[in-house]
């Protein structure tokens, strides 16, 4: 069983996001350790980009802080490598935009990511229509190409999104950018039901989930819950001292989720 499959088998899984290099490359390992210490099942590491078009103010600011600190792709890979050494069993997913992933060629990126122990890749602006750009390279190197489904992904289109997908299916619960609105519980339940009927991949829900109560409600219906902006906000607020409050937040999210009685 892959690390990702194993993490989702202990559902509901908490997927915790931070931007690599925020506030500095040297500070990120301690932040990642705090995610694991708090109980994150999957770590999603954002690759900073100058033009994060799908992100709201919190993660935009994290990208800017990271790049201002001089974070390079080599730094992101080094952060991933050291994470893998410290946490051999926790799945690690890289999330980012196509250009930094493709600029040395898809094969270079897939090989480098696989070598440092990354399990999957989310490329926000690579829809299935452009899978050729990176998908074949990821699959060849044993990395899961993690696809996104959204409220605008209708039944006719869903098979195309699932074709070639791996790891888990990331349901973006609101048509919008990260960190702002939250979807209604009913719309999440309906969507997750629809997605799970179409795939055996675990379904994780993200966008706008910030509090333990929200996480618990989503965990009731989904295989995983993604929390990003709320964690990134703590980095913004506490800088190098962020690991302690982050571990506390993640712990409270995880505890609320596991208190949920998962329907058989």
């Amino acid at each position: 069983m892959t690390r990702l499959a194993s993490a989702f088998s202990r559902r509901p899984a908490l997927v915790a996001f931070v931007t690599a290099g925020d506030p500095s490359p040297a500070a990120t390992p301690a932040v990642l350790d705090a995610l694991v210490e708090g109980g994150a099942d999957v770590v999603e590491l954002g690759m900073p980009f100058t033009d994060p078009m799908a992100d709201g103010p919190a993660i935009q600011a994290a990208n800017i802080r990271s790049l201002a600190a001089g974070t390079t792709t080599a730094d992101v890979l080094a952060i991933a490598r050291s994470f893998r050494e410290r946490h051999p069993h926790v799945p690690l997913v890289l999330m980012g935009y196509a250009n930094p992933m493709l600029c040395r060629g898809p094969d270079w990126f897939a090989r480098a990511a696989a070598e440092v122990g990354v399990d999957g890749v989310i490329a926000v602006d690579l829809p299935p229509e452009e899978d050729d750009a990176l998908g074949p390279a990821l699959r060849a190197h044993g990395l899961a190409p993690i696809r996104l489904a959204t409220p605008t992904t209708d039944a006719a289109r869903l098979p195309e999104v699932l074709n070639g997908a791996g790891g888990f299916l990331y349901y973006v619960s609101v048509a919008g950018i990260t960190g702002l609105q939250q979807a209604t519980q009913l719309s999440i339940e309906t969507a997750v039901g629809r997605l799970k009927a179409a795939t055996d991949l675990p379904v994780a829900v993200g966008f706008g989930i910030r509090s333990p109560d929200q996480a618990a409600a989503v965990a009731h219906v989904a295989d995983g819950v993604v929390v990003g902006s709320a964690i990134v906000d703590l980095v913004a607020q506490h800088g190098a001292a962020a690991p302690a409050p982050i571990a506390a937040l993640v712990r409270s999210l995880k505890e609320a989720m596991t208190a949920v009685k998962v329907p058989a």
């Binding site: 602006d125 229509e129 452009e130 750009a133 996104l148 959204t150 992904t153 289109r157 973006v172």
Partner: peptide
């Protein structure tokens, strides 16, 4: 060229 956009925009 191509269509390098987030999934939300693809159907549109």
């Amino acid at each position: 060229g191509g269509r390098y956009v987030a999934e939300t925009l693809m159907p549109l």
